[in-house]
Amino acid sequence: MGVSRPQKAANGVSTRWVYVFCIASFFLGVVVINRFWAIPDPLDRDKVSPEKHRSEEASFQTGDILSQVSQTHDVIMTLDKTISSLEMQLAAARAAKGDSEEASPVVTKLGTENLKARRKVFFVMGIITAFSSRKRRDSIRETWMPKGDGLLKLENEKGIIMRFVIGHSATAGGVLDRAIDAEDEQHKDFLRLNHIEGYHELSSKTQIYFSTAVAKWDADFYIKVDDDVHVNLGMVGSTLARHRSKPRVYIGCMKSGPVLGQKGVKYHEPEYWKFGEEGNKYFRHATGQIYAISKDLATYISVNRHILHRYANEDVSLGSWFIGLDVEHIDDRSLCCGTAPDCEWKAQAGNPCAASFDWSCSGVCKSVERMGEVHQRCGEGDEAIWHTSF
């Protein structure tokens, strides 16, 4: 016979936590019941005159009940936060376990991290990129994204994680994967996914990105941004900080475009018939260039990603996952400014931009050549992020 060890449930949560939670709930119930249902001694009641008794009852009703209700409310809120925290740990554990079981050799290490070792940060920004986008990535590194020691300083001092997000090729370990490995060795700014890259797989890639990021970092917000968008990190941080106390928020430039059922056109939706009659529009959703979601929503995607339907367009897919939930949609137009002169006019008017791109190109037109110019004219200044308090 050996010393018994604490058992763990299949979801990765120790049974010790279950026992602690049950015992705490029991004692809380005893305290609450005793406070509300305590009955005075009958002998003491007989000694009190009816008038005084009625006076005491009135005083109890106007004073003690309000005090006890307030205290009970505080206890309930504390329990609610505790339960929510346990649920988040459980969900993240499931996500980590799922990623570990399904991961390719390239990303196996992502799913095996200890859940308790997840770093608490402000936000994670995933810059969606492709194998062919090396020059785009370099244009971002040379402008609005810190690199090297600056990237580490951003993580340590501001709690901001920034990574280029990419999966692997159909032949894992091939020349494309080796090129990304070499680039990551140089810059250390990639998040590799258990995902086969493909133009029509962006909805799946986005889903896996959120699941992987939740398993790796405990963040208040998770951001997705394209690699041809200019971002002002200080403004993004200030924008998110205003919504930090809200549990389920979906922040972006909300739109409702037409459902395109005609084959061969850009943004064609093969499942157009699901959205009603011809000519209908989509429900409100954030445009895909950049958006942010709070931790609860990212965890929801992680837990349910195997049953969440993916439409042809990634931004529509994300919006569809939230449309039936109790989610606050925040339409923030600072996340979809145009490039100069639009961004300059808005800054002069006291409304600096968090992100800029050209609608005609769904990003900065010719971003490799123009990102430096856009940064010069639309940027908040390279030191702004360090002087911005969150």
Rank of each mutant, 00 (worst) to 15 (best):
R248N: 13
E56L: 04
D226R: 15
D99M: 02
P258V: 08
S362I: 00
S256N: 15
A10M: 03
T108E: 01
V106C: 11
W386L: 10
W273H: 11
S139C: 10
H387Y: 11
H268W: 14
V327E: 13
G150C: 08
R310C: 13
G148W: 14
E383Y: 02
K120A: 02
P40R: 05
A24P: 01
L240D: 01
S334H: 12
V18K: 05
T239V: 14
Q61I: 07
A213L: 09
S317G: 12
R333S: 15
F275G: 10
R119L: 03
F190R: 15
S59H: 10
T206Y: 08
T129N: 07
M125Y: 05
C353D: 13
T239P: 00
G363H: 12
Q71Y: 15
E278Y: 08
V229A: 04
V214F: 02
R45N: 06
N156D: 15
A182H: 06
E87R: 03
R94A: 02
P40E: 09
K135F: 12
Y311Q: 13
A38F: 00
H53S: 14
S70F: 15
I23M: 12
R178G: 00
D46Y: 08
Q68I: 03
E277A: 09
G279E: 09
V124P: 03
R305S: 10
D331L: 08
S85E: 12
G276D: 08
S320E: 15
W359Q: 04
K109N: 10
W37Q: 11
I160E: 06
V18H: 07
E277C: 00
R35A: 06
R119W: 00
G98P: 05
W17V: 05
K188H: 14
L43V: 10
R248F: 04
Y291N: 14
E277Q: 13
V3R: 02
K47Q: 10
H200E: 04
L193N: 07
A117T: 00
K263R: 07
E197C: 13
V106Q: 05
E183V: 12
T206N: 03
L28Y: 06
A292E: 01
S49E: 00
S203C: 02
A103H: 05
V368Q: 07
Y209G: 04
A355G: 12
Q68Y: 11
I307Q: 00
D220R: 12
Q289P: 13
D332Q: 10
L318A: 15
L154Q: 03
I385H: 04
A179C: 09
V75S: 09
D177F: 15
H187M: 08
L176R: 09
L297Y: 07
V249T: 04
G264D: 06
A219K: 13
A179Q: 07
V316Y: 02
S320I: 01
G234F: 03
D332G: 04
I128V: 11
K255Q: 07
S294T: 08
H375L: 01
I33Q: 06
A103S: 11
Q289N: 12
F357N: 04
K188V: 01
D64Y: 14
W359T: 06
K266L: 13
